[in-house]
């Protein structure tokens, strides 16, 4: 953000490969993904369903389902190699150094326990690991302007609105243990516009106050434009472009990024037919050879069909496309 000192990245993902078992097939959900995350930075990850966004987040926080595995590459958090950690060691980090905000707050809380009780459990567990006393819940909540919600902690999840619960979870995840990394998987996709705006401004506030690094997964380009500093685009399990937010929107490099931005209704006059991308997103069990986007790419040429592109630096962006460099 404010330049000057070049900070050591908090998180470095290098050439990450993640696969799922589906019957006798191997579904390669994340392929060759490399990224860095610096303190205080919000990195947006955009992409369509099935592009590997959520799998990437789950690998970082060590919550991949049993039929999935990290097949290669590394995830380094400061000096700790997360892919090598034992389950117990990962558990100690999770929720303390690296926290996650769910997509649906309603279904990630137990419906039969009071909200306050559940939040206390979360915080108490962290205290055991951290060995120090956390800030009381009510104090945390009034710190971020949620005093009215703090008075109703004896209630059950259904007595709160989705926006209130989401803000509760963000505040607790961010402010009780003060993690360094917050992973947010479409945290506002189920919320109304005005409530979404409130949740986003809370996220920005905790980022400002604590300097946390946030990985923000979203398919809503509007939200990404409003909150992220850098944006990564995923397609068929690969990170095809990483750019700072203004170059992402003004001069996207990868043909997929260009097509995605161009299909937004807001970029076209009323009633005009929208440009679309031919074909469908590939099945991850059967990704096209060469560049995975080549069957749908308007600029594809012979090399694209057999040679996988490597990362190229274009200005401040990193692009995985044969049109650049080479």
């Amino acid at each position: 953000m404010t330049g000057g000192v070049i900070a050591e990245p908090t998180l470095v993902v290098n050439n990450l490969q993640v696969g799922y078992r589906r019957g006798t097939h191997l579904v390669r959900a994340v392929r060759n993904v490399s990224l860095e995350l610096t303190r205080g930075e919000i990195l947006g990850i955009v992409g369509e369903s099935g592009s590997g966004k959520s799998t990437l987040l789950m690998s970082i926080i060590g919550l991949l389902p049993a039929r999935a595995a990290i097949l290669g590459g590394s995830i380094r958090f400061h000096d700790t190699e997360l892919t090598q950690l034992k389950r117990e060691e990962m558990r100690r980090l999770r929720g303390v150094s690296i926290s996650m905000i769910p997509q649906r707050p309603m279904s990630s809380l137990s419906p039969v326990a009071r909200v306050g009780t559940q939040l206390h459990r979360l915080i108490d567990r962290r205290q055991v690991h951290e060995g120090n006393r956390s800030t009381p819940i009510a104090q945390i909540l009034s710190q971020v302007g949620l005093r009215a919600v703090a008075e109703r902690l004896g209630g059950y999840p259904h007595e709160f609105s989705g926006g209130q619960l989401q803000r509760l979870l963000i505040s607790i995840a961010a402010l009780s243990a003060k993690p360094e990394i917050l992973l947010a998987d479409e945290p506002t996709s189920t919320l109304d516009a005005t409530i979404q705006a409130q949740v986003l401004s809370l996220l920005m506030q905790v980022r400002r106050e604590l300097g946390l690094a946030i990985v923000f997964v979203s398919h809503d380009l509007g939200v990404v434009a409003q909150v992220c500093d850098r944006v990564g685009v995923m397609y068929a399990g690969e990170l095809v472009e990483v750019a700072d937010v203004s170059s992402f929107f003004t001069s996207p490099c990868h043909p997929y990024t260009q097509a995605l931005l161009n299909s937004m209704p807001s970029r076209h006059s009323t009633r005009q037919l929208l440009p679309t991308i031919t074909g469908d997103v590939p099945d991850l069990a059967n990704v096209p050879a060469g560049c995975p986007f080549h069957p749908r790419c308007p600029h594809a040429f012979s090399t694209c069909m057999d040679t996988p592109p490597a990362n190229q630096t274009v200005g401040t962006s990193v692009v995985r496309c044969h049109l650049y460099g080479g």
């Binding site: 516009a193 005005t194 979404q196 705006a197 809503d220 434009a225 409003q226 203004s246 929107f249």
Partner: peptide, 12 residues
């Protein structure tokens, strides 16, 4: 207010 809370896909 609805329009002001609309997340516009333009960082500027």
């Amino acid at each position: 207010s609805l329009l002001a809370s609309l997340a516009v896909p333009d960082p500027s």
